[in-house]
């Protein structure tokens, strides 16, 4: 565990927990894409199948359970909570996410380390995570502005990806270990998707103005 990895995990954790707590406290999920949240729930469930087969560390196990639990709780809130579900921007959240699921699954069937159930699902979760933010970015784009919650959420997720890349570089230099290319290429794609958003986030922060994305 190095400082970049820890910072990455913490910003990831903050992004998910802040989202869940704010949805619950304000009873509103306006500006948040249910499709992205469902994709993340699928990502965590399919990636952490090794909870049943391998023990890495207590930290690892607890974090996995927190990620699975909190992502399912967010989906539950947005879908079924009597009050919260009314604020869901259903008509703006129309990204055809089955395309992302299909492409990721086919890619995982073709590109994986070993042809076992666990390895194929692991690769699938890596590919899916890389593109899972797209429905959220499209929703932000369509609504034309971002409230604090959605903006902070995407900001922390982007920070998490940036720290993970630093973590890989650090591990390469200090542990003489290279990150598996499946994670590496997917991670770079994922981080690139945030770059555009970060640009506008930075501009709005600099001007102390509400975040406005171009139509």
């Amino acid at each position: 565990m190095n400082i970049f990895r820890l910072a990455g995990d913490m910003t990831h954790l903050i992004s998910v927990l802040v989202l869940l707590l704010k949805i619950y406290a304000t009873k509103s999920c306006s500006g948040i894409s249910l499709k992205t949240q469902e994709l993340y729930a699928i990502v965590f469930v399919t990636r952490y199948l090794d909870l049943f087969t391998d023990f890495i560390s207590l930290y690892n196990t607890v974090m996995k359970l927190v990620f699975i639990g909190s992502s399912l709780a967010i989906v539950w809130c947005m879908r079924y909570h009597r009050v919260v579900r009314r604020s869901y921007d259903r008509e703006l959240d129309t990204f055809r996410y089955w395309i992302l699921l299909g492409v990721s699954f086919i890619l995982a069937l073709v590109l994986h380390e070993k042809f076992t159930l666990q390895e194929v699902f692991w690769a699938f979760s890596i590919y899916l995570e890389a593109v899972a933010i797209l429905p959220q970015l499209v929703l932000l784009q369509r609504s034309g502005n971002v409230d604090n919650l959605a903006g902070q959420y995407v900001f922390f997720l982007g920070a998490y990806r940036a720290f993970y890349i630093l973590n890989w570089i650090y591990r390469y230099l200090t542990e003489q270990r290279f990150t598996r290319w499946i994670s590496c290429v997917s991670g770079l794609v994922q981080t690139a998707l945030y770059a555009d958003f970060f640009y506008y986030y930075f501009i709005s922060w600099k001007n102390n103005a509400k975040l406005q994305l171009p139509a």
């Binding site: 974090m63 996995k64 598996r180």
Partner: peptide, 10 residues
């Protein structure tokens, strides 16, 4: 270098 055990990352 050896491959990093990617499964130890989240």
């Amino acid at each position: 270098p050896k491959p990093a055990p990617s499964k130890d990352e989240l």
